[in-house]
Design a protein around this nucleic acid. Structure first.
Lengths: 195, 195
DNA sequence: TAACCTGCCAAACGCTTGTTAGGGAAGCAG
DNA sequence: CTGCTTCCCTAACAAGCGTTTGGCAGGTTA
């Protein structure tokens, strides 16, 4: 990686942290510059605008996310194993891109209205196709219960996985894999003791 | 209700909708005024500041939420029935205060740092005590599995319930009670078919 | 040494923000 | 009719916003 590309990534990382902590709109370029140890105007040597920083943060994250997801989906696993792999992969992404995930969670809905961020909508459609398709496959294969509303289940599963970014801290008590294991155990088998 | 109090509530409702749709910081008082059919300055006849609108929206919501929760907690139900009642009550609150819940979700973490909004932290502590306590009671009574990390379970349950505010639309396909039923079925019994 | 590129600073720009001050129309009270 | 209150408008304010411009130190190239 060239030194300038390295510096760029460094600045984007600090920007992502500030965006995640304060929200995109509440974050001023002066705050980002403070956190990076420079003045506001100096950021414009590296980036076109505040918005393009956000853009680069989100698109980089989504790129890596889909690399992982596509690998899982191409592996030809059964429905239950696919769900397990997707959840585990998701928590790994949260571990690696905590700030980006938190930003995505908070801002995606508003941003996707803008043409520049329309790829967020595309990603969400693809996302829904992957998860909902797997759940449907599981119901057809009698691996998942058929008496549950599948769209509702999808929403619950999706949301819980990703909101974890709001409380997860890398290097904490639980590894991403351990969190995935616990979460899968709850969603797949329930928290109630079986009679 | 006096006519002026009525008008006040009306304005707060439209403000809450705009806050929920665009985020608090991205919402200008001019946008709120537009939605209310008046000019920006005119809002200050009714309210001290933009912040005090937010304050009143959130504290009103939390007041009603805790009225419902306290009733449930005082009913002396068993652990499983308490969880069921709390979840159902939560979805009812989402039905009645969708905008306020969405705002709370997005802004609570940042706001609770301000002294003015410290009651958000208090509420969160009380909230955790109620849910975590009930889960612990259930584990002790062998109603809930003891092999799951209870704090992790609490976070998952809490998050999934409240993020529902981001996609729920009143008057939609599912009633709050139906959503609660489906959600409880998933969390308590799991989505996997039992062998 | 001379020319050049890189990475930042200093200072300002036009614009939007939340908020305020004064006024005026409508309705009700005396 | 007169005076008062309610509710909004007009017009402006200072502060803060994202962004631009010009320059300057230090290392690299020739």
């Amino acid at each position: 990686m060239t030194p300038s590309a390295e510096r760029r990534r460094e600045l984007l990382d600090t920007a992502a942290e500030v965006f995640a902590a304060q929200g995109y709109n509440a974050t001023t370029v002066r705050k980002i510059a403070d956190a990076a140890g420079m003045l506001a105007g100096s950021l414009y040597y590296h980036f076109d605008s505040k918005e393009s920083m956000l853009d680069e943060i989100l698109s980089t994250f989504l790129g890596e996310l889909w690399a992982g997801y596509d690998a899982v989906l191409a592996a030809g696993l059964g429905p239950r194993e696919t769900i397990e792999a997707l959840v585990t992969e998701s928590f790994r992404e949260i571990d690696r891109h905590r700030a980006a995930v938190a930003i995505y969670q908070k801002e995606a809905r508003t941003l996707s209205a803008q043409p520049r961020f329309h790829y967020l909508s595309d990603s969400q459609v693809k996302f829904e196709k992957a998860w909902l398709g797997t759940l449907e496959r599981g119901v057809a294969a009698q691996v998942f219960r058929r008496d549950l509303d599948i769209r509702l289940t999808y929403r619950f599963v999706r949301d819980t996985v990703w909101v974890a970014a709001s409380w997860y801290r890398p290097g904490g008590q639980h590894s991403p894999e351990e969190i995935a294991r616990q979460y899968l155990s709850m969603v797949l088998d329930g928290i109630a003791v079986r009679p």
